[in-house]
């Protein structure tokens, strides 16, 4: 019995110690956060705060002079608004404009970049998409290198992101000029095709299983802008798998085949009983995108206007004669 009470007393003692330590830790961290906060707010003299595409408020010190771009779409937007000379490094996927291909490359085979390497380019701004893991974005942030996540999901997002880049890099007029050029280009195309009856179309990203573009995806917006009807627009995710059955029963009038599928000939469809009698195959209305065209389709940016044109001319050739 006495031993039992002693145990209890000891337990209480330990509990007390632990609670004191916890209180100390909480106080210390509160102080740390408080002073840290003071520090950063005092430096706000020549900074700009922008909200990026995933809703983060990013504080960027001005002027921005060295930019590392971790996605071709971001590189292209930088060049399009006339701020290309600020880009000091990009990726091996970059192909447009030709200046971008000769820049030093951030090593990242499939997404994740090396933080060390990014830091070695001494950037004061890093542009990324959600392909980069948040851990890397946080690491760069801790090294006080701001990261803007720009990933347009539709055509108006491109305008907004170009506008943001214009503000951040002090190329406002270049951005506005490019935005207006794109808007004009697209509305010209739209006017030519908008009065035709909508053609139903299947966009094929991958053949087996068939991945396509659904609502909320960038390519879906391109198809809509070109007055097409995407047969997957009622599915529930941006990049859904579409079943053979659904394709057969929806019977698309046209098919667009991405370069990534490895399919480049209509005989692939004609030799398959599932595809044979689909309108698009019977009428040979199948478009096989080449490498460049697929890039234009998949990389939101200044080249998107050509993607819209490709789709519009394919769906309504009579409007472009």
């Amino acid at each position: 019995m006495p031993e039992h009470t002693r145990n209890k007393e000891e337990k209480n003692k330990i509990l007390k110690y632990i609670s004191v330590i916890i209180v100390l830790i909480v106080l210390a961290s509160a102080a740390f956060v408080y002073f840290n906060g003071l520090n950063s707010s005092s430096k706000k003299a020549n900074t700009i705060i922008v909200t990026d595409d995933i809703g983060r408020n990013v504080t960027i010190k001005l002027p921005v002079t060295r930019v590392v771009s971790m996605d071709p779409s971001n590189t292209q937007m930088m060049y399009a608004i006339g701020a290309g000379n600020l880009v000091v490094a990009d990726t091996s996927y970059d192909w447009w404009p030709s200046n971008a291909t000769s820049l030093p490359k951030v090593e990242m085979d499939n997404g994740t970049a090396s933080v060390e390497q990014v830091v070695s380019f001494k950037p004061n701004l890093v542009l990324a998409t959600t392909i980069q893991s948040t851990a890397i974005i946080d690491q760069l942030k801790n090294l006080s290198i701001p990261v803007l996540v720009l990933e347009p999901q539709n055509i108006s997002d491109i305008y907004r992101d170009m506008y943001i880049l214009g503000n951040v890099t002090d190329h406002q007029s270049g951005a506005i000029k490019e935005i207006n050029y794109m808007k004009n280009y697209i509305s010209n195309i739209h006017q030519k095709v908008e009065n035709y009856q909508k053609v139903s179309v299947l966009y094929m990203l991958w053949p087996d299983p068939i991945y396509t573009v659904g609502p909320g995806s960038f390519i879906n917006d391109i198809i809509n802008t070109a007055n097409g009807y995407n047969i997957a627009s009622n599915l529930s995710s941006p990049y859904p798998i579409i079943g053979n059955e659904t394709i057969v029963s929806d019977n698309p009038q046209a098919i667009i085949v991405d370069n990534g599928t490895g399919i480049s000939n209509i005989s692939y469809f004609q030799s398959n009983p599932i595809w044979q009698n689909i309108s698009a195959v019977k009428d040979s209305r199948v478009l096989f995108l080449n490498y460049t065209e697929s890039n234009e389709m998949n990389e939101p940016g200044p080249l998107t206007i050509y993607a819209v044109q490709i789709v519009a001319e394919f769906l309504y050739p009579q409007a472009f004669t």
């Binding site: 499939n110 991958w206 087996d208 299983p209 053979n244």
Partner: peptide, 20 residues
């Protein structure tokens, strides 16, 4: 992880499917 661009396709294959 490093080379295949179509991650969803691979993942789908790895989890199995009779779609083909």
């Amino acid at each position: 992880y490093l080379k295949v661009y179509n991650l969803r396709g691979v993942l789908f294959w790895l989890l199995g499917g009779l779609y083909g």
